[in-house]
Design a binder for these strands. Sequence first.
DNA 1: GTAAATGCAAAGCGTTTGCAGTCGA
DNA 2: TCGACTGCAAACGCTTTGCATTTAC
Lengths: 140, 140
Amino acid sequence: MDFIKEKLEQGEYRLTRQRQVILDVMQEAEGEHLTAEEVLLAARRQSPRLGIATVYRTLERLASLGILYKSRFDEGKHRYEMADASQHHHHHIQCVGCGRIFELAEGLLDGIENEVNQQGFAVINHRLTIYAMCPQCKSE
Amino acid sequence: MDFIKEKLEQGEYRLTRQRQVILDVMQEAEGEHLTAEEVLLAARRQSPRLGIATVYRTLERLASLGILYKSRFDEGKHRYEMADASQHHHHHIQCVGCGRIFELAEGLLDGIENEVNQQGFAVINHRLTIYAMCPQCKSE
DNA sequence: GTAAATGCAAAGCGTTTGCAGTCGA
DNA sequence: TCGACTGCAAACGCTTTGCATTTAC
């Protein structure tokens, strides 16, 4: 949390009440991938007058500082998670039954990445999403 | 094209002039991934009064029949391509410079898929997107 | 003839922006 | 103090929907 405060200050950004609340929400949601709407709902329990625009602006700022990681699955909306929790987890399994998202180990694609680089590309990032039925939904 | 007509008729759907035009556009765009807007623009050269709603409805129908393949990259919109051209090409390299999309061979992920299945999931589909600078943009 | 498909316009959703007022450093 | 931030509402881009009209079979 101190490290986050530092990062904000370095950029001449302010740690407002709203940002604290949003950060709390994100940290409590360890392992989940929240939409802006979900963040708003949770954060309003602490800060009822919070507006959706502030949520978006905050999430965007935190993502650009590398505090949050922003991703988009096969939906029309973005999802956010703490960057340290995500730690390069750009690989997910999305359950087509319940919509939950599971993590997949990093480094699975190192070989493929090298191959692409050898074809003349400069790989910057990658994302793998597997669509599956999770064990729970499968048994229902 | 006959095979497409057949598929439409099986579902009691009609091969209208608009659908033919849209199919033509998609077939001429071999290897490209078009947005609805791009399809509209191209199709209007043949059918000037064509509306965007028809494009969406047609693309949706064709995708649900397996004639088109619909995907979403890290943008706010969908892209479509002929399913036979895509032939399981759910793997792409998207250039962060020019936005162009390159294909990646299928089957790269078979090993990973097996592993996930062994963890109790039932894998249905998967998608890999690599973000990179393409050789051309890299040299600029 | 009749069900399906069209074009238009309006509404939907997630997201962004403009602006006057507020607040943190 | 003063620039960053907020809340609100209006606008945005992509997509979907309602409805009266047209069209394919």
